[in-house]
Design a protein around this nucleic acid. Structure first.
Length: 423
RNA sequence: AGAGAGGUGGCCGAGCGGUCGAAGGCGCGCGCCUGGAAAGUGCGUAUACGAAGCAAUUUGUAUCGAGGGUUCGAAUCCCUUCCUCUCUGCCA
């Protein structure tokens, strides 16, 4: 949620910045927000005055009763009158506050200065690319063929017991999943991340805090009679641990890592190119989350990117790093770097990590602050995938296939217990 | 899931219709005392939203799990709801 006070201070910057996202009526919207806030303030002032008056009378009555004076009818009547008008003012104020929140909640985060303009993925900027050489002369298969040939994942039975997009990993396919998860967690630990095992169901307040609710409700699976949601990413439960907290400066940075399954409805995003592991309803992911001081978050984003890059590189697969343009930026993010790995069997780049700085957008929603000297200021929240498994698996299988066997990247050997998968 | 007890500031804990944002203690911060420390002692120590001020700050309102209600006045009474503990049941 953008900060209203900041908006009031530099409206022009907000307008320019949000226009980068391609929002057309944003200036009118922001003006409306400010005038609603003016109205809110004046209502608040008159309500406070009424209540102050009413409190004063109540105290007078109390004093009179104590001193034995029973003549309080006039005061009572006066107070009742004040009460009536304060009730109606209070109602007005509540409505005003709701109106403001409804608008505020639907305004996305302002893109960082570094974020390029543009409204499609073609406008994303490639920051770097690292390619591994493929000397093999065999014809490279897409991973869904490899999976079938080596019997690593059973999509059909997943379909039978749950539905499309819920794969069953089998045998060495399952072991590979477990190896990757453990490898990613261990590496995070070496980099001073504290491991968390959060719940994978979250309530409405948590969904609101990180920005999935109310507007992105369609992405999450809902448990109807419990009013809970399956997490679309571990970002939600981890970041919400710190909801409504005031954290001491000296306790920062907070660096957490968690492995969780993730659940996404992905409504309407199924097409011909979405085969095999390219898009799933349930997938595994190791997520890193930072809570940082505002002045430290830019550097933290860099270090997170470097960490993610080192992980991908260690798997000996081709990857590239993109800086997302404003139009491609997630709703709550101010700046996002995507990492894509290359899947040579299908000749496609697949996104496997998204590293973002949300700045104060989430902390403002969840009231997460940092105590710096005497001041309390909103924290910056950041997160990134480190890493999402399925597309990494796709890239590993397609990159390291070698006829009748698949070579497992060396860093995983101690985790898998095998160096190759054979037919 | 049933029965009972309970949810008060960073923590412990008093208050159970009147000046209570809330005694007392612990913790923490600043000062005094000291050669230094301990002990002692003085002061301070929640959050949100307004108003005034360049600011330090001053000031109003709300908040005693959450949301409603009764009352001139609610931490205190009533209703709803969430959570915790104990016992019983069920269970990996």
């Amino acid at each position: 949620m953008i900060e209203l006070n900041e908006l009031r201070k530099n409206k022009e910057e907000f307008v320019l910045s949000l226009k980068k996202r391609g929002l057309k009526d944003i200036e009118d919207n922001l003006n409306k927000l400010i005038s609603l806030d003016d109205e809110r303030k004046s209502l608040k002032t008159s309500l406070d005055n009424l209540l102050a008056e009413s409190n004063k009378i109540a105290k007078e009555i109390g004093m009179k009763i104590k001193s034995g004076d029973k003549d309080i009818t006039d005061l009572k009547n006066k107070s009742t009158q004040i009460k009536e008008s304060s009730k109606s003012t209070e109602k007005e104020l509540k409505i005003k506050e709701e109106n403001i929140k409804n608008i505020l909640v639907n305004i996305p985060n302002t893109p960082d200065k570094k974020v390029p303009e543009g409204n499609s993925e073609d406008n994303n900027i490639e920051i770097l690319k690292h390619e591994v050489s493929l000397e093999r002369e065999i014809k490279l298969k897409p991973h869904w063929e490899i999976i079938r040939d080596f019997n690593l994942i059973d999509f059909d039975n997943g379909n039978k017991i749950t539905g499309a997009g819920f794969p069953i990993y089998i045998n060495k396919g399952a072991k590979l999943q477990r190896a990757l998860i453990n490898y990613f967690l261990d590496e995070a630990e070496k980099n001073e991340y504290i491991e968390i095992q959060p719940p994978i169901l979250i309530n409405e307040e948590s969904g609101f805090g990180t920005g999935q609710l109310p507007d992105k409700e369609g992405m999450m699976y809902k448990i109807e009679n419990e009013n809970l949601f399956m997490i679309p990413t571990a970002e939600v439960p981890i970041t919400n641990i710190y909801r409504k907290n005031i954290i001491n400066d000296s306790d920062l940075p907070i660096k957490n890592v968690a492995y969780t399954p993730c659940f996404r409805k992905e409504a309407g995003s199924w097409g011909a190119h979405v085969r095999g592991l390219n898009r799933l309803h349930q997938f595994d992911k190791v997520e890193i989350v930072h809570i940082e001081k505002q002045s430290d978050s830019e550097e933290a984003l860099e270090s997170m990117c470097n960490y993610v890059e080192s992980l991908i590189r260690s798997l000996n697969i081709s990857y590239r790093k993109l800086l997302l343009c404003a139009g491609d930026l997630g709703f709550a993010s101010s700046i996002t770097y995507d990492f894509e790995v290359y899947a040579p069997g299908q000749e496609r780049w697949l996104e496997c990590s998204s590293v973002s700085n949300f700045k104060t957008y989430q902390s403002n929603r969840m009231n997460l602050k940092i105590r710096e000297d005497k001041n309390k200021v909103l924290a910056h929240t950041l997160n990134g995938s480190a890493l999402a498994l399925p597309r990494i698996v796709a890239s590993i299988l397609e990159t390291h296939q070698n006829g009748n066997e698949i070579n497992i990247p060396e860093v995983l050997h101690s985790y898998t217990g095998f160096k190759k998968i054979s037919i």
